[in-house]
């Protein structure tokens, strides 16, 4: 599903070039449950952003579902983010002026669904994440765990195949962290491909494959605690 080949990302800070990713090769299959780990500055968020089509690599190839992402226009990337990828962020990134339901409906607005379709689907997803009684609350009226559930519902609303979560539990306490991880695990069991960036081993252990990133290179791809999946790194 995801194939990365020789991905390099370099940021320019004035005259200085800062290499963040220095040649990443990675294959992730449909239905996998993967964690990317690494110290801060290891490039894990950048890798996530490239996989999420938020950033383009400086060089290298990226195929998503066999489609060459590097050849796509900005608008096509927006469309892929819209209905192939669901994003969950550390800071939830909900729009504060919209209530839970409206936040969840937002990706459907850009996909062009009618208001009725949107409402129906958003309610369905909010029920799925266990927030059936919080639909009209604004983010400020929700706890961190509830906000992250809204964010997950928003990520799911357009039926993406890929769920990307960048430190999804980073702003949560241990208990709610587990609840959120349980939710993501359940979603993965229902079929979605999930990719989580985290620096907590505790969280990463709940996935079935851990990719260690260090200084812009994959150090280790460990599926030792789950050998059922025929995955590997190059």
């Amino acid at each position: 599903m995801i194939q990365l080949k020789e991905i390099v990302k370099t940021y320019r800070l004035g005259e200085v070039s800062v290499p963040v990713l220095r040649g990443i090769d990675l294959i992730i299959d449909r239905g996998e449950y993967t964690a990317i780990m690494g110290a801060s500055g290891s490039g894990k968020s950048t890798l996530m952003n490239i996989i999420g089509c938020l950033e383009r690599p400086t060089s290298g190839g990226y195929w998503l579902n066999g489609q060459d992402i590097t050849q796509l226009s900005d608008d096509e990337l927006a469309d892929i983010r819209n209905y192939q990828i669901g994003f969950v962020f550390q800071q939830f990134n909900l729009l504060p002026r919209l209530n839970a339901l409206e936040n969840v409906m937002l990706p459907m607005v850009y996909a062009g669904y009618s208001k009725i379709e949107r409402q129906q689907r958003a309610e369905e997803v909010l029920v799925q994440v266990g927030l059936s009684d919080r639909m009209t609350n604004r983010p400020s009226q929700l706890s961190g765990g509830q906000q992250q559930r809204v964010a997950i519902a928003r990520a799911l609303v357009n039926h993406p195949e890929l769920l990307l979560a960048d430190e999804p539990t980073g702003a949560l306490d241990t208990k709610t962290s587990h609840e959120v991880m349980d939710l993501i695990t359940t979603l993965n069991q229902q079929g979605i491909t999930a990719l989580i960036v985290t620096h907590e081993l505790d969280i990463a252990r709940q996935t079935r494959r851990i990719i260690q990133l260090q200084d812009g290179l994959i150090q280790q791809s460990d599926t030792s605690f789950n050998h059922d999946l025929g995955t590997r790194t190059k």
Partner: peptide, 30 residues
């Protein structure tokens, strides 16, 4: 390129929307 493992198949209730045609944004809503 690779063996496809069927153990984690998508739920059939979730259709693939990879080629969903995008409609124009509703002006009234904007």
């Amino acid at each position: 390129m690779k063996l496809f493992n069927q153990t984690s198949k998508r739920l059939s209730t979730q259709p693939l929307y990879t080629n969903r045609r995008r409609r124009k944004l509703n002006m009234g809503e904007t």
